[in-house]
Nucleic acid binder design. Structure first.
Lengths: 138, 138
DNA sequence: CTAGAAATGAGAATCTTTCGCATTTAGATC
DNA sequence: GATCTAAATGCGAAAGATTCTCATTTCTAG
């Protein structure tokens, strides 16, 4: 029963929130914009207002249920948080997204923050490149 | 004569482009939005259209004269390219921005791209934290 | 100096996201 | 289960950033 997740997160278990959470959990696509979520829900016959999708995703972010990315800079992309932190590597040709974790980089970031007198709160790292598929298609 | 820079970059040396380039070179602030550039120019009595500022900054980016950042995700921030690549560490309280270069991270990124079958084109790394000033002000 | 291509400026248009507010709903209490 | 109140929703309007359109101006090659 997913409503537990919402309650735990301090959010009332409303119909729109449950729909959105369920959709994120069941979607095979891991990275989606608010518009993507909205349209996909409409397509499956689920009525939710676009403004609500934006609001709910922002609340989910605050609650730690999803992470907001700025892959391209313009619009936000959301990803369901399932466990451990990871960074992303994206193909600039086809838009493919892969995930990775690198302890060396994680450690260096913390050290750099320290060296500069900062207490680290967060970080964002994206590697852009051309994936193997797109390289061979060249 | 700055018009050389523009010619080299394959851009016609027009008045607006020269004004914007000169402004970027002389500004003590290194990171600015298009709006910032526009308003600052207006304040110094230089007439340039906002649309032109956007166009020119985008052209400068393509020409490699400036780098576009997405610090906060919504609007673009531009920085004049003066030589070596560097990454950024930002204070989430006061907006301060510091720069750093870390060879270990650079090397790991290239390795990660390779391990994932990507040819690396670019990367963006931002560390978010609280700077020393803001920590003591707490 | 002149012509043609490229660039500019001003405002309209677009896109993404947020806001305002009247209506509905979750969930605590009776 | 009925009731109440704060919180949430949905809609359309509004906002902010950026791009587009197109008439006018300006480079720059010849």
């Amino acid at each position: 029963m997913e409503s537990k997740d919402l309650k735990q997160a301090g959010l009332k278990a409303t119909v729109p929130r449950l729909k959105i959470l369920k959709f994120l959990e069941e979607s095979k696509v891991r990275h989606m914009s608010a518009e993507d979520v909205y349209k996909s829900l409409l397509d499956s016959g689920e009525e939710v207002g676009l403004a609500t999708v934006y609001r709910v995703l922002t609340q989910f972010e605050s609650a730690g249920l999803v992470t907001r990315h700025h892959f391209e800079g313009d619009h936000s992309i959301f990803e369901l948080n399932d466990g451990e932190h990871h960074d992303h590597i994206l193909c600039v040709k086809c838009g493919r997204v892969d995930e990775f974790v690198d302890d060396v980089i994680e450690a260096r970031q913390a050290a750099i923050a320290r060296e500069n007198g900062y207490s680290m709160e967060d970080h964002s790292l994206y590697i852009f490149g051309i994936c193997s598929d797109c390289q061979s298609k060249k």
